[in-house]
Nucleic acid binder design. Structure first.
Length: 463
RNA sequence: UCCCGGAUAGCUCAAUGGUAGAGCACGCGGCUGUUAACCGCGGGGUUCAAGGUUCGAGUCCUUGUCCGGGAGCCA
């Protein structure tokens, strides 16, 4: 259908233009005096456009009592509005009712709804101001991610969703199988006979594309992946999903410092893009959801991230005049309360913590010369906590194999990953950015379930 | 998974152990330019489930289910 979006009609079309609009009715304000006002939204922007329906329209009686949520196609002339609150409105010449919404049953009313309630009608919640804005921001953030990497010479690669690596150290995995769960094949020892399964081996949904991305980076130089990621953790928090989208750049010849530089430039690009291209939606979030989001993003774009080592962070935390639920100590991981103290009280901006103890980080992170720390890097932001986790990778064959064995992993099971260190091995580094946490940070939405259209969490796979 | 809190009309919420209410939504009526329109009237309830205490339970107790907040795991 050839139609004008509400976005274009409201922002750039000149009065006088004949146009066709299509969308969903938010409200109808009928006047017995002979005409009605429809607030029409088509999802292209936050704003509704006001449609003036004259009583002379042949189907006026039906239009005057159109229920919220009904869909219509409107043909008419864009005119300067006589009323306050909008630059233009549409004087309708024809309004076709496409689909009625049962007013008694349609759950989205023009009133406040709780996020919890809207989650139970996830298929319809995009018709609210809040969720329409979140889905548009999510799209803009995704676009900005591609834009940043494409402009900087990265190759967009695709790593597998189904993987046989069963212990990458990044959490519990979902099993992928075509076996009949009610009639499982057994081998001679009574164990599961995976030879009968689709891939003739145990397979899982990926928890990270990193290992594969490393091999591609060591061929193409600069690569990134951007796709769904799965964690079968029994996590019940406003920051965790069982299925989420992750961006993972990987760059050959980059060290930890390059990696931090990349992460900082990358995040700033995303935030700048959203500030420049999603003004109306961002003003909505700033007004209705969190009145600090715009100032926070502007502040981040204009300043440098704080960088410090894990050891320096521990010094700050142990000297702080504060009683901790988990007292900080070198060798222990940073707790949520520690991260929040650093980002929200000490520095009041994003913080990049590097060089963590090797004992609390996975085998693939590069061991430092002191032998005690690895070239790890976490980017922490206020409220959300860890938004990026990354590292320089271990490129030395002997060190990698030793670290794998220390982690009770058999290098033979990772033969292709280890192989990379045999043929022209180079220093390289990368990180993972959680898309949903980024959208949360940008919009101020409190719960991660409200920044992905159909959230997957323990005991929830509806829709 | 652990700790804390919650579940009452379609939605958001009230209700000292003593007749279950309001706003919004919905229906009807009124209103000649409205802006989450406004004014009047009306219908609407297995108080999450199952037990228990009590003359009497939305309210107190037990168990379960679900939801939220915090923590852990992490992006």
């Amino acid at each position: 259908m050839n139609r004008t979006t509400v976005q274009d009609a409201v922002t750039k079309c000149p009065p006088g233009e004949e146009l066709t609009l299509a969308g969903w009715v938010r409200t109808v304000r009928a006047s017995k005096g002979g005409f009605s006002f429809l607030a029409l939204n088509d999802g292209s922007c936050l704003a509704n456009i006001q449609i003036v329906a004259d009583g002379k329209l042949s189907n006026y009686d039906a239009i005057a009592k159109l229920p919220t949520g009904s869909s219509v196609v409107v043909r008419g002339q864009l005119v300067a509005s006589q009323g306050k609150g909008q630059r233009v409105e549409v004087q309708a010449g024809q309004i076709d009712i496409v689909g009625l919404a049962d007013a008694e049953k349609f759950p989205i009313q023009q009133k406040h709804h709780s996020m919890e309630f809207l989650r139970t009608v996830a298929h319809l919640r995009g018709r609210t101001n809040t969720f329409g804005a979140v889905w548009r921001i999510r799209s803009a953030v995704s676009w900005a991610i591609h834009e940043f990497f494409q402009k900087n010479g990265f190759v967009y690669t695709h790593t597998p969703i189904i993987t046989a690596s069963d212990c990458e150290g990044a959490g519990e995995l979902f099993r992928v199988s075509t076996l009949d769960l009610l009639n499982l094949p057994r081998d001679e020892k009574g164990g599961l006979d995976f030879d009968k399964d689709f891939f003739a081996r145990a397979t899982y949904l990926t928890v990270s594309g990193q290992l594969e991305a490393e091999t591609l980076a060591c061929a193409l130089g600069k690569v990134y992946t951007f796709g769904p990621t799965f964690r079968a953790e029994n996590s019940n928090t406003p920051r965790h999903l069982a299925e989420f989208w992750m961006v993972e750049p990987e760059v050959a010849f980059n060290d930890l410092r390059d990696n931090a530089d990349l992460a900082e430039a990358f995040l700033k690009h995303i935030f700048r893009h959203v500030l420049e291209h999603c003004r109306a939606d961002m003003e909505f979030f700033n007004e209705r959801i969190d009145n600090t989001v715009i100032a926070t993003l502007e502040g981040i774009v204009a300043s440098d991230f704080e960088r410090l080592t894990y050891t320096q962070a521990m010094e700050i935390l142990t000297k702080a005049d504060k009683t901790w639920e988990f007292p900080p100590a070198w060798g222990r991981d940073l707790q949520t309360e520690h991260e929040r103290f650093l980002t929200e009280q000490t520095f009041k901006k994003p913080v990049i913590v590097t060089d963590y103890p090797s004992t609390i980080k996975p085998f693939y992170m590069r061991l430092s010369d002191d032998g005690k720390t690895v070239a790890a890097m976490d980017v922490l932001v206020p409220k959300i906590g860890e938004i990026i986790g990354g590292s320089q990778r271990e490129e030395r064959l002997d060190v990698l194999e030793r670290r794998m064995r220390q982690s009770n992993l058999d290098p033979a099971n990772y033969w292709w990953y280890v192989d990379l260190r045999r043929y022209g091995s180079v220093p390289h580094a990368g990180f993972g950015l959680g898309l949903e946490r980024t959208v949360q940070f940008v919009t101020g939405m409190a719960n991660i379930r409200d920044v992905i259209p159909f959230p997957r969490t323990p005991r929830l796979a509806e829709f």
